Computed example of a mutant assay.
Amino acid sequence: MPSFSPAIAYRLEAARAVVHDAARLAMSMRPAAGGPVGTQKAAQDWLTETDGAVEAFIAERMTALFPEDGFQGEEGGMAREGQLRWVVDPIDGTSNYARGRNRWCVSLGLLEGDTPVAGVIEAPALREVYTALLGHGAFLNGKRIQASPVKDPASAMIEMGWSNRVPKAVFIEKIDAIMSLGAMPRSGGSGALALADVACGRLDGYIEIVINLWDVAAALPLLAEAGACVSPFLHTGGLTGPATILAANPHIAQTLSEAVAIPLK
């Protein structure tokens, strides 16, 4: 595990300011409530003008601040490689954003090699900012957060992300396994915010069969610092392509893992 350095802490503070400005830009461009505004890359996979604008804004600012760092975006791919790499999802929850809904965020994570070391997630319509620095805690609006204490799956709330890349039978199988535990299923349309909800205890678990690095990069240090258990996403293909993730509070993680057949190791 990389050790803490002032350089990483400085980068987190800079990232928080850049993400805040990017979130303001996204809010200024947000469509009014109603039918979706944007285009579809695939079924239910939305792209808006804001996605490109926000990613370009963050890329320009972070490149100016840290030209030696790598940079990877959902829309632009791997722009630069580096031992330190920024990974951005300009609008996570675009399907919500495109309809003028509130559950979406700007997400920026920092990896050192293959270790997530810092992350910022801002959901401006919800007035929430999550930050985490490896070894120094996870926070929501400046207050320390931790995973839920729920131990009984029958009292748990579990979210499962939906993707058109997952066969319907697989999705139904996993949802059925969640419900068979007695847990309450949910689906909110933003992987980054769902993982943040696990970190702060609003959810007891989250699974998604196919999800990308930019969706989770900022949330992974949140989860680690909040005491959640997470499947080895980065080591099962997540560094280079889509992979499966499970995150849960430590009390139900093993039970959930066995129920949905997603290993924690």
Rank of each mutant, 00 (worst) to 15 (best):
L246I: 02
A42P: 00
T39M: 12
F171M: 05
L110K: 04
F4T: 01
F139H: 11
P2V: 00
R24T: 02
I175H: 01
L223H: 06
I145K: 04
A196I: 09
I262L: 01
M29K: 06
Q83F: 12
K143W: 08
P167S: 03
V260C: 06
I8Q: 08
L84T: 04
D45A: 09
H235R: 15
V260H: 04
R165Q: 12
A177E: 08
G227F: 07
A196N: 12
W104A: 05
P232Y: 12
E112S: 03
T240H: 15
E122I: 04
L12R: 02
V120K: 07
V170S: 09
T255W: 06
G73T: 05
A53N: 05
R165G: 02
S5L: 00
A138T: 09
G70C: 09
C200L: 01
L181Y: 11
A261M: 07
M184L: 12
E60C: 06
V230N: 10
S163E: 13
K151T: 12
Y10M: 00
I91D: 02
L222M: 07
A177I: 03
V106Y: 01
E81F: 05
P6W: 03
A219N: 08
L223N: 01
N96M: 09
A9M: 07
P90N: 01
L246C: 05
T240G: 08
L203K: 03
W46K: 03
E60A: 15
K168T: 10
Q72D: 00
G227H: 08
R202C: 06
G189T: 07
V88P: 01
K151D: 09
G227Y: 05
R80I: 13
N102Q: 12
G93E: 07
E13A: 12
A14W: 00
A248L: 09
G113R: 02
P36W: 03
L140K: 15
I8G: 02
E13R: 07
G142N: 10
P90K: 03
P36F: 09
D21P: 00
C229M: 11
A14N: 03
A259K: 07
V230E: 14
G188Y: 10
G35W: 04
G188F: 12
A243D: 14
M157D: 03
P153A: 14
P2F: 00
L222S: 05
I209K: 07
M29T: 01
A138Y: 06
C200F: 00
A259H: 08
G82Q: 11
A228G: 02
F71H: 11
R127K: 13
R61Q: 13
S28T: 12
Q44F: 14
E55S: 13
A56D: 15
A169S: 12
G113W: 09
G188V: 07
M1F: 11
G109V: 08
K151W: 08
P149C: 08
G137K: 09
Y130T: 05
E81C: 03
G52C: 06
A183T: 07
E225T: 13
S163M: 12
